[in-house]
């Protein structure tokens, strides 16, 4: 039967104490939109739920020498932030397509990343934006580039005694034009068949720098360096973008698999088709 103790500490120190006390019997919960589903399905059965919702000071979106987003910032906050919309467009597009308004009101950016679903809607945008995950433990903080953060489906480098406190994005990423496409079978309450995010830094009409990231194309969200390298220094033209799509969809770059939700060949095809479209959309925004 579903039964657990629910604790809501008011500070990070208390969180660490409780984590230490309850060890592997405990699970952290932020918005609960993943955790509660797992518990109900019987996949998780923690004896103690340690809520992070008392840590109201981790609920922010700021810009100074870099962009700082608190782990508890909700998708709805990101969706409605003018700053995110204008300067970190892909992330705004990712967050605004999570579930439904109700889910976005509850679900957090930190939860989306720590849950590490291969389909997480903010993962590809964060990869494109060179985000850094700031992890804290009683021993102190460490910073992990998001590209190294995911190691498998539902698996990250975060250690059991660590809490994700912030996502940091370098300020120069604000100069990139970015976009995210969630390719899905319907417009809401759905997971992507494939997720594609592209960032382009244009100098005149030449691509000075580029980022391409995919979700559901591999066991973890991935960056497609080969395609990015190909773009650098090239003119921003349809033919060039298409070529990048070809490279990214090749077996060296991505390996989408057959699943109940979609067959691999179609995912691969969508990588090819969508990369040029998302790049165009990023620049046109």
């Amino acid at each position: 039967m579903i039964d657990y103790e629910y604790l809501k500490p008011a500070s990070l120190d208390e969180v660490f104490d409780l984590m230490k006390k309850h060890g592997s019997k405990a699970e952290l919960v932020a918005g609960g939109t993943d955790v509660m589903v797992f518990i109900k399905q019987g996949n998780h059965s923690p004896e103690v739920l340690i809520s992070l919702r008392g840590l109201t000071d981790l609920c922010y979106i700021q810009k100074n020498s870099a962009y700082h987003i608190g782990a508890l910032a909700t998708h709805r906050m990101l969706e409605q932030s003018q700053l995110v919309k204008e300067e970190l467009t892909a992330l705004q597009q990712g967050s605004s397509q999570v579930g439904s308004i109700q889910v976005r009101n509850m679900g957090t950016l930190g939860g989306n990343i720590c849950n590490a679903a291969p389909s997480a809607d903010t993962a590809a945008p964060l990869l494109v934006l060179d985000a850094v995950a700031v992890l804290q433990s009683p021993e102190g903080q460490r910073r992990v580039p998001i590209e190294e953060f995911f190691i498998g489906p539902s698996e990250t480098v975060k250690k059991n005694d660590e809490v994700l406190v912030e996502i940091e994005i370098p300020s120069e990423m604000g100069r990139f034009k970015t976009a995210y496409c969630k390719h899905a079978r319907r417009q809401a309450m759905t997971l992507p068949i494939i997720g594609v995010s592209v960032g382009i830094l244009l100098e005149k009409d030449v691509i000075a720098d580029a980022r391409i990231a995919l979700t559901v194309a591999a066991p973890t969200p991935i960056r497609v360096r080969q395609a990015e390298d190909f773009l650098k220094g090239k003119p921003f033209e349809e033919g060039v973008l298409k070529e990048a799509g070809e490279i990214a969809s090749s077996p060296e770059c991505c390996m989408p698999r057959d699943s109940l939700r979609c067959e691999g060949w179609y995912r691969e095809e969508m990588v090819r088709i969508l990369i040029p479209r998302v790049a165009m959309a990023a620049v046109e925004e």
């Binding site: 319907r186 309450m189 997971l191 109940l260």
Partner: peptide, 27 residues
């Protein structure tokens, strides 16, 4: 969009996440 996926007699998508009815958003 709608389809109950049945594999060897088993319903594989017994939820609204994987059984895709249209939403109000699909307008």
């Amino acid at each position: 969009t709608e389809e109950i996926k049945v594999q060897k007699g088993k319903v594989m998508n017994p939820n609204f996440r994987d059984y895709q009815i249209l939403t109000a958003r699909d307008r």
